[in-house]
Simulated scan of single mutants.
Amino acid sequence: MKKTFEVSDRLFELYHRVHRLVNESMTEEGVSLARSKFLFFLSKLGPCRSTDIACALNFAPRTVTEAIDGLERDRLVMRKPDPEDRRAKIVSITETGRVVLEAAEHPRKQLLEEIFSALDDEELDALFDIVGKLVDRTDEIRKRKDEAEEAAQIAIAR
């Protein structure tokens, strides 16, 4: 059991170090890793409501609103009225946002290539498979927890 915790601690350590390095390199190009997630989402899926962004990225609606406010101030996104719901706004990436996102992607990719170059192709394939298994297991656990929570809510409602 001790080895499990040692490995998980190393994974968290790796994640935080990579996250910090990637964030620094992207910020030097004009957009943080966090802000780039919003821009990337909008560039791939196109204009959408902030509630759609919150749901897709698993962020609180207030967090998304604050992020969009900042991105809009920097002219990286723009809001327009939703033609189907006058209370809502449609958010889309601007041309400036696309340019900034593209500029920040290059150092991110370069840095990740440099980090993962420590592994040969066989090790990289093995790591990919191992991480995939762990992702699948966390999805199974999440599904069980969600089902148990839903069952508990139904029991309470009765």
Rank of each mutant, 00 (worst) to 15 (best):
S36I: 03
D85S: 06
E72I: 03
K145P: 06
D146S: 14
S32C: 02
D9L: 14
G30Y: 03
A54E: 03
R144W: 08
E149K: 11
K89M: 05
T94I: 00
G132V: 04
D52Q: 14
I68E: 03
Q153E: 13
H19E: 10
T51C: 10
D139W: 13
A34Q: 09
I141N: 05
D120R: 04
L33A: 05
K89L: 05
D136F: 14
F40C: 01
H16I: 15
H106Y: 13
D139L: 15
L124W: 08
R87W: 10
T96K: 07
R144D: 11
G97H: 00
R62S: 15
F5P: 06
I154K: 14
A88K: 11
I90L: 15
D9M: 14
R10H: 09
V91D: 02
F12C: 14
F128D: 07
D125P: 07
E28T: 03
R87F: 15
V135C: 12
S43Q: 06
V77I: 02
E66H: 11
T4A: 12
P47Y: 05
A148R: 07
D74S: 10
L11D: 08
D85E: 07
E24T: 13
F116R: 03
V131P: 05
V99A: 02
T94K: 00
D121L: 10
L42V: 03
R137S: 13
R108V: 00
I68T: 04
R10A: 15
Q110T: 12
L33Y: 05
V135Y: 12
I115Q: 01
R49W: 01
K133V: 13
L45W: 09
I93C: 01
K80S: 10
A152V: 10
M1C: 08
E66Q: 12
L112H: 03
A104Y: 03
F38M: 07
S92I: 04
A155P: 04
R35I: 05
E149P: 05
L71M: 02
T138A: 14
G132F: 01
E113M: 13
E102T: 02
E84K: 11
E140Q: 11
R108T: 01
Y15R: 15
E122I: 15
G132Q: 02
C48E: 09
E6Y: 07
D139Y: 15
L112C: 05
A54P: 03
V100Q: 05
L39P: 00
V22K: 01
L119K: 08
K44A: 04
I156M: 11
E123A: 09
K37A: 07
L21E: 08
F38P: 04
T96Y: 01
P61R: 05
T27L: 06
L45V: 06
D136P: 10
I141G: 07
V77A: 00
A56M: 04
H19R: 13
L127E: 02
K37C: 07
N23Y: 00
Q110L: 11
S50Y: 08
A151W: 08
I130E: 13
V100N: 01
D85F: 07
R137K: 14
E149V: 09
L111Y: 02
V77R: 00
R62Q: 11
L127H: 04
